[in-house]
Each structure stands twice: as C-alpha cells, then as structure tokens.
C-alpha cells in the first residue's frame, strides 16, 4: 500500500516562496492567479495491508516528523 502525504503551510502563515511563484506567474502573463501556496508531497511505500492501521501510523509520522504542526497542515491519502 502507498500513502500520499500533502503538507501545506497553515492559513495565515506567510509563504514567501508561494508569493514569489505567484509574482513570476503574473510576470508571465497569467493574470488570473490570485495566490499560490507552496507545499510538499511525499509518497510512502508501506508493508501494511490494514488500511486503518496504516493511516493511523502515517498520521503519527506526520505529527512527529513529516509535518511541523506549528506552521503546517497535512493530509493523508492511502492508495493500493
């Protein structure tokens, strides 16, 4: 089973990289871009076949290492 983890900055946390990307897109003529938030995507290969147990474990990994919950939110998705 694979776990896909998206990590994004919490609402309200300044994202200077996202701002720089948005500004570059504006310079390129993509005037319709109202904002960009940069995040991370991680794909984990898991031994587990138990969906619920795997999700619980990946959430613990997010809390302890993968995300910094002071500034970041995370979302976990499990795929076969």
């Amino acid at each position: 089973m694979k776990a896909r983890v998206h990590i994004t900055l919490k609402q309200g946390v300044l994202d200077p990289q996202g701002k720089a990307i948005a500004s570059a897109l504006h310079h390129m003529g993509f005037a319709g871009v109202e904002g960009v938030r940069q995040g991370k995507f991680l794909e984990l290969d898991l031994k587990s076949t138990d969906r619920a147990a795997a999700e619980k474990e990946v959430r613990t990994m997010c809390e302890r290492l993968l995300a910094n919950t002071v500034i970041e939110d995370y979302a976990v998705e499990l795929v076969k």
């Binding site: 300044l14 200077p16 720089a20």
Partner: peptide
Amino acid sequence: LTESGLLPGALVRNVGL
C-alpha cells in the same frame, strides 16, 4: 531547538527569500 519542542514556534524562509 524549535523542531525538538525545547523552544516554541518555528523558523521559516526569510521574507525576501
């Protein structure tokens, strides 16, 4: 220290990048 929880808060990318 902030990542290990010994101090509160976090240090993120400089505003000017």
